[in-house]
Every structure is written in C-alpha cells, then in structure tokens.
C-alpha cells in the first residue's frame, strides 16, 4: 500500500470512529417515584430516543447512590405479574423506547441514603458503542 492510500485509509478510519463514537441517545422524562422509608428498592423510568441509523443498546446502568441498578420488565403471565431481568435496553434505529410503570423499568437497589421527593438520582449509562452518558431522574 502506498503512503497516500495508507494515510487516506487511516484518515477514513479515524473519521468513521469519530462518527460512531459521537452516537449517543437522547433521554427525557427521567423520574422515580418516591418510595416508603422501609423500601430497599426503587423504580426508575425514562424515555430514550435513538435518532441514528443503527440500533444502540444500553448495556449497563449504575448509580453512585445505589448498590446496584438492573433493568427489568414486568410481564403478566399465568395470572400473575412477574419481573423479568433484561440484559440490556434495545433502542432500534430511529425509534423511541419508554420505560414506564407496569412495563420496562429500572430496579434501583439498596439506596445508600433515603431519597425523597425533589431529590435527584444520577445514572451512568453505558452504550453498546462504549459511549457513556450521565442522566438524571427526578424523584416525584
């Protein structure tokens, strides 16, 4: 490969990398219902929009205010409401996904201190393209 071609290839790879790396999701309506004082688990909800041409997965969520954050989905099966652990949140290209009561939700486990109405929960979100984003949920 001649030096010009090689330079072009590196340049295009760098460009492509930057283009992919810039892909983040748009979060809105982040909230969490205030929970009774004895509760060791809270729920989190948000709306997420992917305005890119390829699907993006939310692969990991953590919060400095909780021991652990998991993604779950409430399903109604055999006459019962059941919670199913989800490995990720799939946000298809050009689509919006909503987390809401009775459906997909975050399980925020073991708050490090009691969180009340008006407080904010900070979430660190990792995407399948290795991008990370920080979002906030307001407690209502």
């Amino acid at each position: 490969m001649n030096p010009v071609k090689l330079t072009l290839l590196i340049a295009s790879l760098l460009f492509l990398n930057t283009a992919i790396a810039a892909q983040t999701l748009k979060f809105s309506k982040g909230w969490s219902p205030e929970a009774p004082p004895v509760t060791r688990v809270m729920a989190g909800y948000f709306t997420v929009k992917n305005s890119h041409k390829n699907e993006i997965l939310i692969t990991e969520i953590s919060s400095p205010q909780f021991d652990n954050v998991e993604i779950h989905r409430t399903i109604h099966e055999g006459g019962m409401a059941k919670m199913r652990w989800q490995p990720h949140i799939h946000v298809p290209a050009g689509k919006t996904v909503m987390l809401e009561p009775g459906g997909k939700h975050l399980m925020l486990m073991k708050p490090k201190r009691r969180l009340k109405k008006g407080d904010t929960i900070e979430l660190q979100i990792t995407l399948s393209n290795n991008m990370t984003q920080t979002i906030q949920l307001s407690i209502k």
Partner: peptide, 12 residues
C-alpha cells in the same frame, strides 16, 4: 414491600 414497580404503583 420489596416490589419496585407493580405494588407501589397500585398503592399510589
């Protein structure tokens, strides 16, 4: 009481 989604929503 450890139910994060369905129970608090119903009680609310």
């Amino acid at each position: 009481t450890n139910c994060p989604d369905v129970c608090p929503a119903a009680l609310k």
